[in-house]
């Protein structure tokens, strides 16, 4: 009896050690998936490496001083990135100043029952679809619709508040402020969609509890719902910031590509991605290296922002 079972298991082991095409295919398939999984990390390193290798001559020549130099002179081979770094950060911050309050307000509106569900769901869908509109379309809308519309208002602001340095130059058709506003409009759907999701995912018991304690709708919102959805909202803001920092087309079409830092928001400026988009075609030699150096700086900036976003969103998921 027992000897029989032992004999059977032996044959089983033997059969498993025999050459078996089915098992071989299985092994190959497994290692293929491992290879692609490792490949994702490899691609990331490859991106960094290819930027680094082309930027290398500029990194060697300009070193860290590249970050603080304002010159961009292909004739003398003198390059710096300060105007672009400043322009990238300033345009993104102004965009956030407009987009965050607006976006969170709309998200609150769309997550509450102000409107019947029949209206609300399509509205939410529309917002998500707007997030997919390509940035080049936003840029074109900016050129043909938004800038001609907003310019008279900006001229008014300049006349009245021209003594404030921020508004000290007459508004030009290509400038920092309108670019930042188009960026704000562009990142608005992102903020609305993710903030709305995180507001909707707050446990209904919290709302019921707050109502049970006698809180009004807005007391519940401001003291319970928004605070508990806060990390999701901050995550959406960080993702939007990442998008605003890396945005190319709208900035390239609207900002005017002036290689200088101007305290006035109504003057032409530049961002890293707009600079690359505009100069890459004619660039060669050290100028191309310098553009890749700028791209490397942009990548590090967006990397930091996106990692912060991930840390915040992860914490949010752990609380749940």
């Amino acid at each position: 009896m027992t000897s029989q079972t032992i004999a059977k298991s032996e044959t089983l082991i033997e059969s498993s050690q025999k050459f078996n095409p089915v098992r071989l295919v299985d092994q190959i398939f497994y290692w293929l998936t491992v290879a692609t999984a490792l490949g994702v990390g490899f691609i990331l390193l490859w991106i960094a490496w290819s930027l680094l290798s082309i930027a290398f001559p500029a990194i060697v020549k300009f070193n860290i001083g590249f970050l603080f130099s304002t010159s961009w002179n292909p004739v003398n081979d003198a390059f710096g990135a300060l105007p672009q770094i400043a322009g990238t950060i300033i345009s993104a911050i102004i965009a956030l100043l407009f987009a965050v309050p607006l976006g969170v307000g709309v998200a609150v509106f769309l997550s509450e029952n102000f409107l019947p569900t029949k209206v609300q769901t399509p509205l939410g869908l529309l917002v998500e679809l707007l997030a997919a509109v390509p940035s080049v379309v936003y840029g074109m809308w900016g050129i043909f619709v938004f800038v001609p519309f907003i310019l008279p208002f900006l001229q008014g602001i300049h006349r009245v508040f021209g003594w404030i340095p921020l508004f000290s130059t007459p508004p030009s058709t290509r400038q920092m402020f309108t670019t930042a506003m188009v960026l704000a409009i562009m990142i608005l759907p992102t903020i609305i969609a993710i903030s709305r999701d995180s507001l909707l995912s707050v446990a209904p018991e919290l709302r019921q509890g707050a109502y049970g304690l006698g809180a009004t709708r807005w007391e519940t919102l401001t003291r319970v719902l928004v605070p508990s959805a806060l990390s999701g909202i901050i995550g959406s803001v960080m993702l939007a910031l990442g998008r605003a920092l890396g945005e190319t087309m709208a900035a390239a079409m609207l900002i005017g590509n002036a290689n200088r830092i101007n305290i006035s928001l109504f003057a032409p400026a530049s961002t890293i991605s707009a600079m690359i988009a505009n100069q890459f075609g004619e660039a060669s030699g050290l100028q191309k290296s310098a553009l890749f150096y700028q791209a490397l700086i942009l990548m590090v900036m967006t990397l930091i922002v996106n990692m912060l976003a991930e840390v915040i969103v992860n914490r949010f998921q752990q609380v749940e």
Binding site: A37, V40, G41, W46, G246, E247, T248, I276, L298, E310
Partner: peptide, 27 residues
């Protein structure tokens, strides 16, 4: 490894599109 892949996927989705263009230009 799959945690690493998740991390890389998140980083990759945050890479500015112009940098993807420069990468393809380079390689």
């Amino acid at each position: 490894l799959s945690q690493f892949v998740r991390f890389c996927t998140n980083v990759l989705s945050g890479v500015p599109s112009i940098i993807a263009g420069l990468f393809a230009y380079g390689i």
